[in-house]
Amino acid sequence: MPKRKSMQDDACPVARSLDLVGDRWSMLIVRDAFDGIRRFSDFQRNLGVAKNILSDRLSNLVAEGVLEVQPASDGTSYQQYVLTPKGESLFPVVVALRQWGERNLFADGEPHSLLVDKDSGAPVAVMLPRDHAGQVLTPLNTVVKKIPAQ
């Protein structure tokens, strides 16, 4: 299978982001890391992904600074994968994807997992982009300032 074209040098932040975490396995690994999964075997078992694909995605996420490898916290000879601050900053992205999926991919009343506040047990409020004054923004209120072609 041919390797896909890298978007690492693209002027668009969305393209660069998708180049790193845009395939389903990478984003699901990040999701699972937020849920406390740390070991290769646990990622593999939870995701059901082939070991070679998991190894590739974990290596890439480590190389790009989203995850870091540490000795296992239980003192065994295993290693664990832990989110870095760069990885932790993907939390709003995962929440936004979750909330979009809840609104658009489930029938009314269809059961699904729910993200809740640990302390109150209340569902996490819907995330919406806001301007500097706190007003909700829509695509009609925004414009992308593109870099002129050279």
Rank of each mutant, 00 (worst) to 15 (best):
V126M: 06
R39A: 03
A63K: 15
P71F: 13
F91D: 13
R31F: 06
L105Q: 14
Q44H: 13
G87L: 01
L47S: 04
R57E: 13
S55I: 00
P85N: 02
L18S: 10
P148V: 14
Q150S: 12
V14P: 08
Q135P: 01
S77I: 05
V95K: 04
R103H: 14
D131M: 06
K118I: 06
Y81T: 05
L58S: 08
A72V: 06
N46P: 00
S59E: 10
W100M: 06
L90K: 07
V66K: 02
F106G: 03
Y78N: 08
S120T: 10
M127D: 04
P13A: 08
V14F: 14
G109I: 11
V143S: 08
L61P: 00
E102A: 09
D23I: 05
S113A: 10
A63V: 09
S89M: 06
L18I: 06
Q80H: 07
G101E: 15
V116T: 12
D74M: 04
W25S: 15
V126F: 07
L114I: 13
Q135V: 08
S89H: 06
P139K: 03
Y78W: 10
W100E: 01
G65A: 03
A149W: 09
S17H: 12
D10M: 08
P148C: 13
D42R: 15
I37L: 06
G22S: 07
E68S: 13
D117N: 12
G22Y: 03
M1W: 04
I29Y: 05
R57Y: 08
